[in-house]
C-alpha cells in the first residue's frame, strides 16, 4: 500500500443520495490519494453506479446529505461540465449514442474545454486531428470512427474504446470507470486495460467500478472496496477481490458491519 502522505484527490464523507425520493446511497465514505488505483465491487443494485453518477453530477440523482471534496474544492457545487473541466472523468457503463453529432467535433469541443481550464491553447480541427489520431493508437481504434456520429452504431467494444479515447484526451485527475469491462471480449479487455494503465500517472487517481474480478487481473488495484445496500462495507487490498471471487457476495453480507476506512 502507498504512503498516506500523498495528495488527497477525492474525499467522500457520509454521502447520502436518492433518485425519485428512493434512497440509494446511505452514507458512503471514501478517500482517494494521488497515484492510487481503487476498485469498488458489489452486486447489482448495491449503489456502485449511482456513486459514480453522483460524483459526475447526473441531474436525476439528489444528494440529500454528505460531501464530496475534489482537490479541496466542493465538487457538489459544480455543474457536471465544470466537474469535467476540473478533471473528473466518468467512463460510462453504457456510452450514449448521439445521432448527427460528429465524433471528431464532439471530441474536439470536449478536449478544448478541458485544455482551456488547464491553460493550454485551443486546437483547431487540423491540429486536433493530429492529436486525436495519436491518442487513438492507445486503444487501437480506427480513425474512421472520427467521421461517424458519437457512438452511433458502434459495437459494445468500440463504445468502450471511444470512452478510453475521451479519457486520453481529457487527461483527468480522477478517472472513474463504471463497468468498463462489461461486454468486452478478452482481447478488447486487454486493450482497454492497457490504455487505462498507461493513463494512470503518479499525480492522478483511478476508481474502477466492477462486478467481476477479471478486470482486476489486468489492472491491479491498491484498494478494493465492497459495496452493499448503499454503503462501503469492507475495504481491503487486492486479496479481498480474490476472496470475493471465491466465496461470492453472500460472504460479505454475512460479515456485515465491519466497515474499515483507508
Amino acid at each position: 500500500m502507498k504512503s498516506k502522505d500523498t495528495k488527497l484527490i477525492l474525499e467522500i464523507t457520509d454521502l447520502h443520495a436518492s433518485v425519485e425520493d428512493q434512497p440509494i446511497l446511505k452514507g458512503v465514505n471514501l478517500k482517494i490519494h494521488a497515484g492510487e488505483i481503487h476498485a469498488i465491487m458489489g452486486r447489482n443494485g448495491s449503489g456502485k453506479s449511482t456513486l459514480s453518477k453522483v460524483i459526475a453530477g447526473h441531474p436525476a440523482y439528489n444528494v440529500t446529505s454528505g460531501s464530496v471534496q475534489f482537490q479541496n474544492e466542493d465538487l457538489l457545487a459544480l455543474e457536471p461540465e465544470e466537474r469535467a473541466r476540473a478533471g473528473v472523468f466518468l467512463g460510462f457503463q453504457y456510452p450514449i449514442e448521439i445521432p448527427g453529432v460528429s465524433n471528431l467535433e464532439f471530441l474536439r469541443v470536449a478536449s478544448n474545454s478541458r485544455r482551456e481550464k488547464l491553460g493550454k491553447e485551443e486546437l483547431d480541427t487540423f491540429a486536433f486531428e493530429e492529436l486525436v489520431e495519436e491518442r487513438m493508437k492507445l486503444v487501437q481504434m480506427n480513425p474512421a470512427f472520427l467521421e461517424r456520429s458519437v457512438n452511433e452504431g458502434f459495437s459494445g467494444g468500440e463504445k468502450k474504446r471511444n470512452e478510453i479515447l475521451q479519457m486520453a484526451l481529457l487527461e483527468p485527475v480522477m478517472a472513474i470507470l463504471d463497468e468498463t469491462d462489461s461486454g468486452l471480449d478478452i482481447d478488447a479487455l486487454r486493450i482497454v486495460a492497457s490504455g487505462v494503465k498507461t493513463l494512470a500517472k503518479p499525480n492522478t487517481a483511478t476508481l474502477l467500478i466492477t462486478h467481476y474480478q477479471r478486470l482486476l487481473n489486468e489492472i491491479t488495484p491498491d484498494f478494493v472496496h465492497v459495496m452493499s445496500a448503499g454503503q462501503i462495507l469492507r475495504t481491503g487490498g487486492r486479496e479481498l477481490a480474490i476472496e470475493l471471487e471465491k466465496s461470492g457476495y453472500d460472504w460479505i453480507d454475512n460479515k456485515e458491519g465491519q466497515t474499515e476506512g483507508t
Binding site: G57, A84, F92, P95, I96, S113, R114, Q166
Partner: peptide, 11 residues
C-alpha cells in the same frame, strides 16, 4: 444525452 455531453466538459 445531455448529461453525457456535459460530463465531457461541454456546457
Amino acid at each position: 444525452q445531455l448529461f453525457y455531453l456535459q460530463s465531457r466538459g461541454i456546457a
